[in-house]
Computed example of a mutant assay.
Amino acid sequence: MKAIYNASGKKFVIVGANSGIGQALTHELLDCDATVFGIDIQKDSQIVTTPKYFYFKANPLEKNDLDDVFTKIDTQVDQINGLVNLSGTIKQFKAIESLTSSDWDETYDISFKSCFNACKVITPLLRNAQKAAIVNMASGLAFIGQKNYGPYSASKAAVVSFTKTLAAELAPAIRVNSVAPGAVNTNFIYKEDGGTRFDKDQYIKMVPLKSLARPEEISSVILFLLSESASHITGQCIHINGGAGMH
């Protein structure tokens, strides 16, 4: 994608950097001449580290892990211009009455608490930038009732509400927005046997634009929200779903 703004000298943190959307966003930010700090739970980065890309293995559910990363970043830079929280998972496809408390917590915590932890830890470096931005990953499932997605839907609804509260608390220095994609063609929608978690053909039929989203179609909106072009946008949730849900 052609860079939409000059991010030379700017620094960004991506939590969930190894995800499909995380990789797409990292490449776009590097194309904009930004410096990127990627965080994910896997040992190895899916993107080759460069003089402008640094990768840290950390579990965003563990605040101590993020504190350690913060300390390492803080020794390299005095400010961060943007934070993107992409963490999310669906561990169990069960009706709520069939879920155990641990089933619920596993999905809910990864999909929401990781966002909360990262915002708490990185906000001091964002404040140093004076004009900074946070973008949190919500989901279209936060806005509809879909069976067997209980803890994930609830966690992403929490992200939407959390984003609005944080936007009010951190303004005017830091803008905070969320994005709510529909189905995106990444590993997230596929099972271990290679099949999708839902009827992909049926889903595409109901989408007015007749396709799954590509990762770049989500990351480009995130990039816009991070940029000065979105300087008067905060507390909003941007839906990216090909028209599957019109809000």
Rank of each mutant, 00 (worst) to 15 (best):
M1V: 10
M1T: 13
A3Y: 12
I4H: 03
V13M: 08
I14T: 01
V15C: 03
N18T: 00
N18V: 00
S19H: 04
G20I: 08
G20P: 07
I21T: 10
L25T: 07
L25C: 03
T26L: 06
T26F: 05
H27Y: 11
E28Q: 15
L29K: 13
L30A: 07
C32N: 13
C32G: 13
I41V: 09
K43V: 00
T49E: 15
F56M: 03
K57Q: 08
A58Y: 07
L61P: 01
N64Q: 15
V69E: 00
I73G: 05
T75F: 13
G82Y: 09
T89S: 10
I90Q: 15
I96Y: 14
S98M: 14
L99M: 14
S101R: 09
T107G: 00
K113D: 04
V121A: 04
Q130N: 15
A132M: 12
A132C: 12
V135R: 08
M137N: 03
A138Q: 01
L141A: 12
F143I: 02
I144E: 13
Q146T: 13
Y149V: 10
G150Q: 05
S153L: 05
A154L: 08
A154Q: 06
S155E: 04
V160G: 02
A167S: 07
E169K: 13
E169S: 11
P172R: 03
P172W: 12
A173K: 14
I174T: 04
V176L: 01
V176G: 04
V179E: 08
A180G: 12
P181T: 02
A183S: 12
V184M: 09
N187G: 15
I189V: 13
E192F: 01
D193W: 04
D193P: 02
D193H: 03
G195R: 15
R197V: 14
F198H: 01
F198M: 02
F198T: 03
K205S: 14
R214D: 15
I218H: 06
S219K: 10
S219F: 09
S219M: 10
S220D: 13
I222F: 05
L225N: 10
E228C: 07
S229G: 12
H232R: 08
I233F: 05
T234L: 03
Q236V: 02
Q236K: 09
I240Y: 06
G242E: 07
A244S: 14
G245V: 14
H247S: 11
